[in-house]
Amino acid sequence: MSTSSTHHACHHPVRDVAIVALSATVSCLVAAVIVMTLDGGPLAVISGSGATFVASFTIGMTVLGHFRHV
């Protein structure tokens, strides 16, 4: 193995965004189940799960952005 070879990191931005989106979707579904368990109405379920999705996706993309700069 040559000592002068360079290692190139392979970046998969679509894969990373898909992972963040799927994680946000799972947290959204968990939030919906929790609100339904607490006898929340349909509007409460939709708004609670939607807010959870937006928050989880935003946090995930922020963390992903910080990992990109490291």
Results as ranks from 00 to 15, higher is better:
T3Y: 08
P42Q: 10
S49T: 03
A32P: 05
L22M: 05
I59H: 04
V33H: 04
A51S: 14
V63F: 11
I59R: 03
G50Q: 11
F53W: 15
I34N: 07
T52L: 06
H7C: 03
V54M: 09
L43R: 00
S27R: 15
I19E: 15
S56R: 02
A9D: 10
V54E: 02
A55D: 01
S49I: 03
G41C: 03
S5T: 05
V35H: 05
M61C: 03
G50I: 07
V45S: 00
M61I: 02
F53V: 02
S56T: 04
M36S: 13
M1V: 06
T58E: 03
T52G: 01
V45W: 04
G60V: 01
I34S: 08
D39G: 07
A55F: 08
A21K: 14
V45N: 01
M1S: 10
A51G: 15
V54T: 06
C10Y: 13
G41Y: 01
G60W: 00
L43W: 06
V20Y: 01
V30M: 11
A51Y: 04
A31R: 15
A31H: 06
L29Q: 14
G48L: 01
T25N: 11
I59K: 04
P13M: 02
A44P: 04
I19Q: 12
P13N: 02
F67W: 06
R15D: 10
P13L: 04
F67R: 11
V35W: 03
T62P: 00
I46H: 02
G40V: 05
V14R: 12
A18V: 07
A21I: 06
S2R: 14
S47M: 09
L43P: 00
H7I: 14
H8F: 09
H8N: 07
H11L: 14
C10F: 13
S2K: 08
V20K: 02
G65H: 02
V63N: 10
I19P: 01
A21M: 08
H11V: 11
S4I: 08
M1G: 13
L38W: 09
G50C: 08
S56I: 00
L64I: 00
L38V: 11
